[in-house]
Amino acid sequence: MKQLSQIYLLLLLVTMLNGCSTIGYYSQAVSGHLSLMMSAEPVDDILSDTSTPMDLRGKLTVAQQAREFAGQRLALPVGEAFSDYVNLDRPWVVVNLVAVPEFSLEPHRWCYPVLGCQAYRGYYSLADARAEESQFRNKDFDTFIGGVTAYSTLGWFDDPLHTGFTQLTEDRMVALMFHELAHRVVYIADDTAFNESFATAVELEGLRLWLSEQGKSGQFDEALDRLARRNQTLSLVEDFSARLDVLYAQQDVLPDQQLRNRKAAIYQELALAYQELSAEWSEPGPFGPVPVSLNNANLALFRQYNQHVPAFRQMLRNAGYDFADFYKAVEMLSEQLEPQRSEHLAALSERFEEHL
């Protein structure tokens, strides 16, 4: 009965929208998510099936343990999320399109009911994403299409586990579950940095406690190494973004071709700097294996994530690692205007020191 009511909600969403292109986009979103829901099987049934492969059985068993841990120890609103499983025929659940003007780092934004405006557009079909991408490329926009391992419906629906989760190592699968469940706690329309940094903080601290309980505390160092690589990359990106901002501010002075040439040179320097930075890393960094090809869309998307993670981890520390109290503090902060939120988070970030 609950699944049926969710289907009606999806259909109602489409009927509320105007415009052929809008209806077309939401129709694919509804059909894509509906297909995901209808393909789901209860995890308990899969675990009780003797023909279930041992590897999948092991991952689903760990996932159910992590699901219980998330509700009890992390005070996350689990509900019926991750109680079903979907076997996907692809490594991603959706792909996101990002489009940014040729001489800007401000991405095009699409606006959605409830979610507000976002700098990306999700598609269940790669062909559909490429079709819209071509429209932006015809207007000389920089674009990027990337696969998304998982997404959250913010508690509106019972999100299932799927191949995107179980193809990960156990620690990354558990971390991703905590991250997506955190989006059910608080969500601010139009503030991706706040939403994703909060969820990443819950992911990190949740994983730290989970690994400690499992007697695998040493594995948390690997998560911190991944975070450090992201932070080093973010610092590099911010430096080159500042140079690009200076260049793009000269649009009314320099001819387009000169702007393009200087832009290409800056991105070539960035690619080389990233190659040098990642030379000693044990695994590919946030932009993947080198050599990399980057543009405005890559940078615009990457800059929106992780910048407030230390602040939220400090907030949790201030709450004595009581997650329920932490969530209350985050909800109160979310009610402030963006300038006040950012100022408060910046001050918290300066106070944070990593676990010794």
Rank of each mutant, 00 (worst) to 15 (best):
L299E: 02
V148T: 07
A300Y: 01
A347Y: 04
D225W: 00
Q64C: 04
A66G: 10
N296K: 00
M37A: 07
N296Q: 14
G206R: 01
P289M: 08
A81L: 02
H183C: 09
Q336L: 15
N296G: 10
Y248S: 02
G58L: 09
G71K: 12
L76F: 10
H308L: 02
A70W: 04
G288Y: 14
D171F: 03
V290D: 10
H183N: 09
R73K: 10
T192G: 06
P291M: 06
Q232V: 01
A228E: 15
M173F: 05
S39Y: 00
E132W: 03
D256V: 13
S48L: 08
P77D: 09
G320S: 06
F69M: 06
Q6N: 12
G116F: 07
A279C: 04
V237F: 02
Y123C: 07
R303V: 02
R229Q: 13
W110T: 01
L168D: 02
Q258P: 03
Y26W: 15
S134W: 09
N295F: 03
S21L: 15
N298F: 11
D55R: 14
P77H: 14
R208H: 13
M315Q: 07
M332K: 11
T192Q: 08
L88M: 13
A182H: 06
E106V: 12
L259F: 07
P42I: 06
T192R: 14
D245M: 15
F178W: 03
A223N: 04
I266G: 03
L272K: 14
V186Q: 13
H344E: 04
D89N: 15
V253Y: 10
Q257T: 11
L270Q: 09
Q340W: 04
S152V: 12
I7D: 00
S152P: 10
L333D: 07
V93N: 03
Y123A: 05
L247W: 01
E205Y: 04
R303F: 01
A40I: 00
D128F: 09
A264I: 05
F352Q: 11
R351F: 00
S35F: 00
L115V: 14
L316Y: 08
A119D: 03
V95Y: 12
F198T: 07
